[in-house]
Structures are given as C-alpha cells and as structure tokens.
C-alpha cells in the first residue's frame, strides 16, 4: 500500500467511475420504479384488503425491516439458486433492492393514505366514482403529495445501501473502487473518490427531487 494521499494515481480511471456511478443510479432507478408501484398496491391492501392479505403484507414488511439488507442479498443470490432459482448478480441486486425498498415505502405510502381526510373518499363515492377511481384519482395523488419527501429520502437511502451489492460482484460504483485498488494499490484514494461521488449523487438527487416536488405538487401538499 502506498504512502501519502495521492489522487493523481486515480485520475486515469474517470471513465470507470462514471460507468460505476451509472450502474448504481440505474439500479436505484429500477428499484425505485418497481418499489413505488408495488408499494401502492401493498399500502392499499394493508388499508382495505382482506384479513389474510393484510397479514401477508404485515409479515413481509416486518421480516424485511428487521433483517439486514446484506443478509437479504446473500439469501437471494446464494440461497435461492440452491432451490433451482438461478440468476445473475445484477438480477439478484435488483430483486434485493426492490424487495428492501418496498418494505419501507409501503409503510410510508400507508401513512400517506391515512393522512387524506375520510371526507375525500366519501365525496368521491358520492359523485358516483368507482371505488378504484376514487383511490387512483382522489386519494392517491394527495397521499403521494403528503409523503413525497419521505419517499425521496428512502430512495436515497436505498442508493447508499446499494454499495453492498459490490460484494456479489455487481459492477456498481463501489465495485469500481475495489477493482482500481487491486490494480494500483491506492485503496484509500479509490474509496475516498467513490465516497465523494456518492455524496454528490445523494445531494443532487435530493435537490432535484425537491425541485420536481415543488413543481409537481405546487400548493397541494398539506
């Protein structure tokens, strides 16, 4: 391992860093998309579903929220193939991230739904709208507007936690640092640069989301 702090040894790998950052952002985007869609259904089930369905959602949420993401990842990538479910590391990462994020966003979404006054549902039903339309066009938009900041910070958390998918050799941002340090032995510098990139991505994501939020929900959040 080298002596002093020397970033120039890292400078030549810019392309690799960008590629890794792209993979991390891509994984996060996919997990966020699936996660949000599933959690809408999950939250609606938790709120209005049959007894057994509600129990199922609760069990899923509790199981995921009370175990480490790393263990979930290992279980999916190493454990499931032994049952015959073979998958690439990338697929395993996407599944693990989605399953993990969804457990948190279901709770957030449910709080959002509960924050919409019951009068809104009643007013929608009184207008003759089908209950599903009342949910999709009256309750859901208000619910999302109310919990939008919490959803965003959960997605940022997922992005940061995704650093551990490097452990199953997904070529994400952290794995790029692993590779570089194995070539030039500038371990600290490699991880330092990657940490700074994560920080920048987290800050940008929060800023962008906040801007988008004020546009999307102008005057709507309660």
């Amino acid at each position: 391992m080298g002596g002093d702090f020397d970033l120039s040894a890292i400078a030549g790998y810019l392309g690799m860093f960008l590629q890794g950052a792209g993979v991390t952002l891509g994984l996060t985007a996919i997990a966020a998309t699936f996660g949000l869609l599933i959690s809408i259904g999950g939250a609606a089930t938790a709120r209005w579903g049959m007894r057994w369905a509600r129990a199922l959602v609760t069990a899923y949420v509790e199981l995921i929220r009370n175990t480490p993401f790393l263990v979930q990842l290992f279980f999916i990538f190493f454990g499931l193939p032994s049952l015959g479910l073979k998958m690439t590391a990338m697929t395993a990462a996407i599944i693990a991230m989605t399953i993990n994020l969804t457990a948190y966003t279901i709770e957030i979404m449910r709080a959002g739904i509960e924050s919409v006054p019951p009068g809104q549902r009643e007013a929608g039903l009184a207008l003759g709208l089908h209950p599903i339309w009342v949910f999709l066009s009256v309750i859901l938009p208000q619910a999302i507007a109310n919990v939008y900041p919490a959803l965003v910070s959960q997605i940022v958390i997922t992005m940061l936690e995704s650093a551990v998918v490097s452990q199953i050799a997904v070529m994400d941002l952290t794995h790029v640092a692993d590779l570089i340090q194995s070539r030039n032995y500038r371990t600290f510098e490699a991880y330092f640069v990657v940490a700074v990139i994560y920080l920048a991505m987290a800050i940008c994501l929060r800023r962008l989301a906040a801007k988008a939020g004020t546009r999307l929900f102008a005057g709507r959040a309660r």
Binding site: L160, S162, V164, T174, T187, F188, V194, L199
Partner: peptide, 16 residues
Amino acid sequence: GTPLLLQLFLIFFGLP
C-alpha cells in the same frame, strides 16, 4: 450522504 460501507472502508484502510 455516503454509504456506511465506504465510511467503514475509509477508516479500515485510512487509519493504517
């Protein structure tokens, strides 16, 4: 704003 994993790496490889 940074992954805990990298905080851990920076300490583990940085302090030496």
